[in-house]
Nucleic acid binder design. Structure first.
Length: 488
RNA sequence: GGCGCAUUCGUCUAGCGGCCAAGGACAUCGCCCUCUCAAGGCGAAGAUCGGGGGUUCGAAUCCCCCAUGCGCUACCA
């Protein structure tokens, strides 16, 4: 039986950015859609660039988005280990095999020589690339280097003539002249493999059927294909996904601000919104539908609807989509997701009891369609939690009214609310709306004055609901304070 | 420099020879709703489909050339 097996193979050199995650998403969707396996493999073969903590960041990011892996770190699997740094002997064995067959060779060239060589090539305007000096070393020269104690790298002996073609599911046939390619390093002098080598060995050994990776790998895929051929293996299917660019149209990197996936959680994005949005960066269903649940994505995602154009990652649409998902969330659910943000802002204690939880759940419907990010909640709800309101008293005086008139209407409102036994929104409206007529002011003026008095803001959720949630006790106290603070 | 990939509204995209004087979404602007702000509804503006040659009765869609952008060209991935 044929099972689709794909992998996400990040290298732990920092927190994954949105582009890496998009690649992971497409792999995950592809695997789930085809009922296959999604493998997480860690390509930690560069010991110098290794950044502690990035493995955790990668796994946290994937987990946060719900991209669960079937095999990999913490999960194990039939093709363990899933860390390339733990598979060194495997690569070495295959490298030895290729050397023995004359398809690869040890290279003793020093970094200095290679650098000088490159410099010279550049000056003469020649194509860059290793000049193959060690490919033609005599056995004697070779043993001389060995005697000197030079630790060689192993280079792949590229076929000098002909061309190499591979079929890309995304781009069709891609052909390259063999003479363009230089003898790349397979095994470094520290015994670690380079990407080109380990990716081939592992994809084969881990029975990967489809390699879905970013576009930037297209130029090196022929090398990989040559490696497969040299090892006598059938290459997997390749599909190169368009890369994601920053707003300046260059490859996404740290320079583009907060692009690391962990930042999105802190910024108040919902994982379901990120997944939906990322799916649409390069993939489309019918060009019309924009909102897809995870299940719908799995059901509909496939490579034939993936484009080839690089996409610029712009946040505006993500923000809209995040707001959309926030509005869809049940109040209780949204409240729970909001708690950490309110706590971080110091509006709620670390320990939130049932009363406070109920309070937040009552606030949620009022701000739900007024925030696009969870992180906007503290600023949007601040007056529900603070004891003291701070605002410019002049705000109380509505356009067309004097401070005196404002005092009159606030007092009248105060008394009307106090006289009204219930603090339900509908009751409040019933008593306050006629009051405007009575006082001969516009409803907007009356409500506006009360709004500022009760919240300190000129823009808030509907007044009566706001007072009802806040509680009439508190509202009355705040109106009293406002009257006292009134200018004049 | 060499090689590769890409090129439809500001952005994400639909389009796979006639249904397109190019559709949807975000953002923008206007109107409606309305106690403010949002959300929502309606509408406007916005792409001579990078340019030039072909092929064809007919091209955004196929071919060629050019331009531009990005990527690769490391003992990085």
């Amino acid at each position: 039986m044929y099972t689709v097996r794909v992998r996400f193979a990040p290298s732990p050199t920092g927190t994954p950015h949105i582009g890496n995650i998009r690649t992971a998403l497409f792999n995950w969707l592809f695997a789930r859609h085809h009922g296959g396996k999604f493998v997480l493999r860690i390509e930690d073969t560069d010991r110098e660039r290794l950044v502690p903590g990035s493995l955790e960041a990668i796994m946290d990011g994937l987990r946060w988005l719900g991209l669960d892996w079937d095999e990999g770190p913490e999960m194990g699997g039939p093709y363990e280990p899933y860390f390339q740094s733990q598979r060194l002997s495997t690569y070495q064995a295959y490298a030895e095999q290729l050397v023995a067959e004359g398809k690869a060779y040890p290279c003793y060239c020093s970094k200095e020589r290679l650098e000088a060589m490159r410099e010279e090539q550049k000056q003469r305007g020649e194509p860059a690339g290793y000049d193959r000096r060690c490919r033609y070393l005599t056995p004697r020269e070779r043993s001389e280097f060995e005697a000197q104690g030079v630790t060689p790298v192993v280079r792949f002996a590229i076929p000098l003539e002909g061309e190499t073609t591979y079929h890309d599911l995304m781009h069709g046939d891609v052909t390259i002249q063999n003479r363009i390619l230089d003898d790349f390093v397979m095994l470094k002098s520290d015994g670690y493999p380079t990407y080109h080598f380990s990716v081939v060995v592992d994809d084969r050994l881990m029975a990967i059927t489809h390699v879905l990776r970013a576009d930037e790998w297209i130029p090196s895929t022929p090398r990989h294909v040559m490696l497969y051929q040299a090892l006598g293996w059938q290459p997997p299917q390749f599909a190169h996904l368009p890369i994601i660019l920053g707003p300046d149209r260059t490859k996404l990197s740290k320079r583009h601000g907060a692009t690391s996936i962990t930042a999105y959680e802190e910024d108040g994005y919902l994982p379901e919104a990120i997944v939906n949005f990322l799916a649409l960066l390069g993939w489309s269903y019918d060009g019309v539908t924009e909102i897809f649940s995870r299940g719908e994505l799995v059901a509909r995602f496939d490579l034939d609807r993936v484009g080839t154009t690089p996409a610029i990652f712009a946040r505006e649409k993500l923000d809209w989509m995040n707001g959309y998902y926030i509005r869809q969330l049940p109040a209780v659910d949204l409240a729970a997701r909001l708690l950490p943000f309110l706590q971080k802002a110091g509006l709620l204690p670390a320990d939130v009891g049932p009363d406070l939880t109920a309070y937040v759940e009552a606030i949620v419907p009022l701000i739900r369609e007024r925030i696009n990010l969870l992180s906007e909640a503290p600023q949007a709800t601040e007056y529900f939690f603070r004891e003291e309101l701070r605002y410019e008293p002049g705000l109380l005086v509505q356009k067309g009214l004097t401070p005196e008139k404002t005092r009159t209407i606030l007092l009248a409102a105060r008394n009307a609310i106090a006289a009204q036994g219930s603090c339900e929104a509908a009751r409040l409206e019933e008593t306050l709306r006629p009051l405007a007529v009575e006082l001969e002011v516009k409803t907007g003026q009356l409500f506006g004055a009360i709004r500022v008095a009760v919240t300190g803001r000129t823009a808030t959720p509907p007044l009566f609901e706001t007072i009802a949630v806040l509680g009439c006790q508190k509202a009355l106290a705040r109106i009293d304070e406002a009257i006292a603070a009134l200018p004049g």
